[in-house]
Amino acid sequence: MNTRLKTAAYVGPGLGWLALFMIIPCGIIFVYSFFERGTYGGIDFIFSFDNFNRALDPIYLNILLTSGRIAGLTTLIALILAYPAAYAISCAPTRRQPVFLFMVMLPFWSNYLIRTYAWIVLLNREGLINNSLEGLGLISEPLPLLYNEFAIITGLVYNYLPFVILAIYASLSRLNPEIREASEDLGASSLTTFLRVTLPLTMPGIAAGSIFVFVLSIGNFITPDLLGGGRLMMVGNLIYDQFLSARDWPFGSALSLMLIGVMMMLLFTQAIAVNKSMGERV
C-alpha cells in the first residue's frame, strides 16, 4: 500500500472525529455569536456585534473581571505552594521521586465533584474546620468560610495544585545539576544560584503550569457553582445560564468565544516565549 494512503488511513478516523465533534461544533458557536437571540429563545439570523458589546456592559464586564481575578489569584497561590514542593521532590533520592510524584497526582484522578464537595464538608458553618476551632475555644462564632471568593479559590487551588507541581517538577528534573554546581563553584550563594540560574531555567514549567491552572480556573463552572453558592458568578456560570435558563445561545456563544480567545492568546504567548528561550540557548 502507498505510504501516504496508509498514513491517511491511520490518522483519518481520529482527525475526522475531532473535526466533526470539536471543530465544527466550535465553528457553530463562532457563527452563533454574531447572531441575535430570537423572541422565543431561538436564533435570529441577523448579523451583529451586539453580543460582544453586551459582554462589555458593566454587569457582565464585572463577572469577566471577577473571573480573571479569581483565576489569577488561584494561579499565584498554586505556584507559591507548588514550586517548593516540586523542588523538594526533585531533591529526593532518584528512586523515590516517582513515588512522591504519584502521591501528588493521586488525588487529581479522583472525581472533581467529590473533591469539591469535600470542601463544603470542611468549610461549612457546622463544618469540620469551624467545629474544631470552636471546640478549641479559638472562635465563638462560626467563620464565614463557605460561599465566598475564599472558598472558590481554595477549591480551585486544591483541584489544580497537583498538575502545577507535576509541570514544575518536569522542568526541574530536566535541569542539569552541573549547571547549579558550576554557579556555586564560581562563588554564587545558594540564593543567587536559585534566582539567577534555577528559576529562569524552570520558566517553561512555571509557564505551562500557570496557563493550565489559569485557563481551567477562568472557565470553571463546578467550583464557583458549589463553593460560591450562586452568590458569586464566574464566566462559566454565566455561559451555563445563557444556555440553560436565559435561553440566549448567541450571547452564551459569544462569551465562550471570548474564553477560547483568552486561552489561545495565552498558549500563543507561551509558544513564542518557549521558542525564544530555545533560540537563546542554541
Binding site: M22, V215, G219, I239, S253
Partner: peptide, 17 residues
C-alpha cells in the same frame, strides 16, 4: 485542544451541534 478547552465551552458547542 481537547485537553485544555474549558469543559463548558465544548459542552455548549456540542449541544448546539
Amino acid at each position: 485542544a481537547p485537553m485544555i478547552i474549558p469543559d463548558i465551552v465544548l459542552a455548549i458547542a456540542l449541544l448546539s451541534f
